[in-house]
């Protein structure tokens, strides 16, 4: 399998936090969602991938090459969205176009303005007058308009209204549909990933606690809500995680068929990613 991005045993130590042996393998044509609480290590991982910081151990490969030895033309094949960083808010859409034309050889001005028109973004207003959703739209367009092969997106759906979230999910799905392009995105809005990712990586306190394909989640994971008297009848070894939630217990199962063999009268439903994240972080 060919990978556009490989993060191998990444370790970064801070006095109060450690990113510990993070592994991500992003094949061509796939989307991986990196999910975790605030401060779990998502942004640190992204910063390491983008060479914005040094790391203590590990190796990061982009397009099969060490990320630190990529030449300009290869770096042009990466599109970036960072939730907390962009151009100065006094710039407008036209200014950004002029800058990006200088920064990227393959900047597609026509595509940029087509998308600007499609997403109804005003051209002459400075960014500081944009809503947070509008700002995010412009960031996403800047990541795409130079036609990259790899998108690295840090919270790209933050502040977006449901319609644009839908449009952007479509945009990302189209982006990978050629089988060559890939996306790594971090988010805490897990619902966006339901229809988007092929694989989900859960990170908590610097550790990957689950790396699983969406297909496996759909086919093998199940969740059930039970009152306490029923919950105590289930053996610990038969489920993956449990969590007391209000008056009931949420039980997460990671081998649906085996569970149903033992507890045939119970009805499992498909877990949503938000529940999965909650159970992984807070569950026992």
């Amino acid at each position: 399998m060919e990978y556009n991005l490989e993060v191998l045993n990444l370790v970064k130590k801070y006095p109060d936090f450690k990113l510990d042996s993070v592994n991500i393998k992003l094949p061509k044509g796939k989307i991986i969602g990196l999910i975790g609480e605030n401060g779990s290590g998502k942004t640190t991982t992204i910063k390491a991938i983008l060479n914005l910081m040094n790391y203590d151990k590990g190796n990061i490969k982009i397009f099969g090459k060490d990320s630190r030895s990529l030449i300009k033309e290869e770096r042009e094949q990466i599109g970036i969205v960072l939730s907390d960083s962009f151009f100065s808010p006094i710039l407008n859409v036209n200014d950004i176009n002029k800058l990006m034309k200088d920064f990227y050889h393959n900047w597609n001005e026509k595509l940029y303005y087509e998308m600007i028109k499609e997403f109804k973004i005003p051209c002459n207003k400075p960014l500081k007058e944009f809503s947070s959703g509008m700002k995010m739209k412009i960031k996403v367009l800047c990541a795409i308009a130079h036609e990259p092969k790899l998108l690295i997106l840090d919270e790209p759906t933050n502040g977006l209204d449901p319609i644009f979230r839908y449009e952007i999910i479509e945009l990302f799905n189209n982006f990978v549909s050629n089988g060559e392009n890939s996306i790594l995105m971090t988010t805490h809005i897990t619902s966006d990933l339901e229809h988007l990712t092929d694989e989900v990586i859960f990170i908590d306190d610097g550790h990957i606690i689950l790396d699983v394909s969406k297909e496996v989640i759909d086919n093998e994971y199940g969740i059930l809500e039970l009152p306490e008297e029923k919950f105590i009848k289930i053996k610990k070894e038969d489920y993956f995680k449990s969590l007391k939630y209000k008056d009931e217990y949420l039980v997460l199962v990671n081998s649906k068929d085996e569970f149903l063999k033992k507890y045939s009268k119970m009805i499992l439903r498909k877990p949503i990613l938000e529940e999965l994240m909650l159970m992984l972080v807070k569950g026992e």
Partner: peptide, 11 residues
């Protein structure tokens, strides 16, 4: 604007 982080992510 924390622009340096964004700029250094570009080529």
């Amino acid at each position: 604007a924390d622009s340096d982080k964004y700029l250094l992510s570009l080529p």
